[in-house]
Design a protein around this nucleic acid. Structure first.
Length: 520
RNA sequence: GCGGGAAUAGCUCAGCGGUAGAGCAUCAGCCUUCCAAGCUGAGGGUCGCGGGUUCGAAUCUCGUUUCCCGCUCCA
């Protein structure tokens, strides 16, 4: 199976077995939005619990919050989202390159400016010491002509930008005969405005309603609660605040199934540290986070760090944890040293003093932040990519058959235990039901009596159930059952009374979490 | 957004101008068997959606939606 086939197989497996469905499918779907089905939601919840427990349960200096999706609009001005993601964009049809329309025009203005400077330089050489630059700029015909063009263009440009006049911007590009630097052609699309953030209105009447945004990241909900949590929790630096929640982005290109969606879920932790110690903590969390991924037991060679060469304006170190998806190495998690950018901006925009008083040094400072930010949906896709296998299995008559098996870490599997009566009579179904009625308080169990026993095993292989228990005639006399391992297909005969302990041990999160923390 | 491909039953697909099919899956019954494919029967599709051509369209054509691939963008 090549990578492309594997990915197609994965997508159809997700639908066929109730993991992921396209949103609004019966209405032809909604682009880049997906729903999680009955097994998908279990797997997703287990992934979130694995993350949450590894952060909040196992680090006494990390606490969690759950902030609202709606936030005061000024927050997005402070964070930089409003300014940074409202660009008018234009495509060149020949080179397929995309440009910011305003930048193209600014470049044109700069060219005119350069032309004037060139004229001035030429004149300076020609006139030598007697050159009166100011006079020349005011009187030379060629300079004045270019200057006039510059002013006219500049005025028109500012007007169009202020009026948000996209058609006007395109007209300027056409009138100025601006060409694509790559293709050299003037075959432009219309100028379009791309808004990263979804906007909506808060307030029941149209007039007086407040324009609010659906958050494009969960991090800001943590920053604006920094003071609340630090004070009410009596938190001492260094400490972290974790949060799991939905975020929304109007992606220009949304692709690759649930890898890039318009509505997605993030698991973020912002760790507040003393200025100057941020790089030490950056390394610390890098190590913790890669352990968390590796602990799931998939091929270690399928993970790698990708350090950022070019850093965002707020960061002084950044790396991604990438996973080898069927469509290549892609980012699953980002770890960023964000300096004091966010808290400083919120201090500026809110007018509140957002600082930490250090009693030892008797000083106040704005904490620095180290962020770990991981996509739930990307992790989900990563876990499924790594788990889905097709392998040969022997059949009853000595032949060979392909079986599809999801080798999920047991702690993440949607269904932990399936219980089957070998046959649908002789009191076996009743015993199977009794076993489930007892164990369903501890983990998700399923009963199945339909079809041959082999088919039932295969059905549960396909959704990743780690254990299948079969009640047979021997069970009636000695209260033992067979328990079958998903990965090895090996069966053991064990007393019913031991099932809870055997399965419980294997599917407990402890097996994953044990090494996912660092002994300090 | 640009270019290419695809869309027929829950899934995988056949049919390519003349009454919508197969396998698997589902449901009911029979059979009781520790690793798919035993027997009988049943349900399920206005062939993604909307126009056009035609006596007649799943099939030809135009548009549109969604998905996949490449480019592009990415906090």
């Amino acid at each position: 199976m090549n990578q492309e086939e594997l990915f197609k197989k994965l997508v159809s497996h997700c639908k066929e077995y109730g993991f992921v469905f396209q949103s609004s499918e019966i209405y032809d779907g909604l682009s880049a939005v997906y729903d999680y089905g009955q097994y998908g939601v279990e797997l997703k919840n287990n992934i979130k619990k694995y993350w949450w427990d590894s952060m909040v349960l196992l680090h006494e200096n990390v606490v969690g919050i759950d902030s609202a999706i709606f936030m005061h609009p000024t927050i997005w001005k402070a964070s930089g989202h409003v300014d940074a993601f409202n660009d008018p964009l234009i495509d060149n049809r020949d080179s397929k390159k995309r440009y910011r329309a305003d930048v193209l025009i600014e470049d044109e203005l700069a060219k005119l400016e350069a032309k004037i400077e060139k004229e001035v330089e030429k004149a300076r050489k020609r006139f030598g010491d007697t050159f009166d630059e100011a006079l020349y700029r005011e009187t030379n015909a060629r300079v004045l002509e270019v200057r006039a063009r510059y002013d006219a263009l500049n005025q028109r440009f500012n007007q169009a930008m202020n009026d948000n006049d996209l058609a006007g911007l395109k007209q300027i590009i056409l009138d100025q005969e601006i060409v694509c630097p790559v293709s050299g052609t003037r075959n432009w699309t219309d100028v379009r405005q791309f808004n990263l953030m979804f906007a909506t209105e808060m307030g029941s009447t149209a007039d007086g309603a407040l324009k609010v945004f659906l958050r494009p990241e969960t991090a800001q909900g943590i920053f604006v609660n920094y003071l609340n949590v630090q004070k009410s929790g009596r938190m001492k630096i260094p400490f972290g605040i974790a949060q799991i929640g939905k975020a929304f982005r109007n992606e220009i290109v949304a692709r690759q199934f649930i890898f890039r969606m318009r509505e997605f879920e993030q698991m973020e932790m912002q760790f507040f540290v003393k200025p100057g110690e941020e790089l030490k903590w950056f390394e610390y969390w890098k190590d913790i986070r890669i352990r968390w991924h590796r602990q799931m037991g998939f091929n270690p060679g399928d993970y790698r760090f990708h350090d950022h060469e070019k850093l965002a304006h707020y960061a002084n170190a950044a790396t991604d944890i990438e996973y080898r998806f069927p469509f290549g190495f892609k980012e699953v998690e980002g770890i960023h040293s964000r300096t004091d950018f966010d808290l400083a901006r919120h201090q500026e925009f809110s007018g509140r003093k957002i600082q930490y008083f250090d009693p030892e040094t008797n000083e106040s400072y704005i904490p620095y932040v180290v962020e770990t930010s991981i996509g739930v949906d990307r992790t989900f896709l990563q876990v499924l990519s790594a788990s889905l296998h097709e392998e040969e299995a022997p059949t009853a008559d000595g032949g060979v058959d392909l079986r599809t098996v999801l080798k999920l870490p047991p702690a993440l599997a949607p269904v932990k235990l399936a219980v089957f009566p070998l046959v649908k009579k002789d009191g076996l179904p009743e015993i199977a039901r009794q076993i489930i009625n007892d164990l369903k308080f501890d983990f998700y169990c399923q009963y199945d009596e339909k079809d041959s026993i082999g088919k039932r095993y295969r059905r549960h292989d396909a959704i990743g159930t780690p254990y299948c228990v079969t009640v047979d005639h021997q069970t009636v006399s000695d209260e033992t059952v067979t328990i079958r391992n998903r990965d090895t297909m090996v069966q053991d005969r064990v007393p019913i009374a031991q099932l809870k302990e055997i399965v419980g041990q294997k599917v407990s999160l402890r097996s994953l979490l044990g090494d996912a923390i660092k002994s300090e």
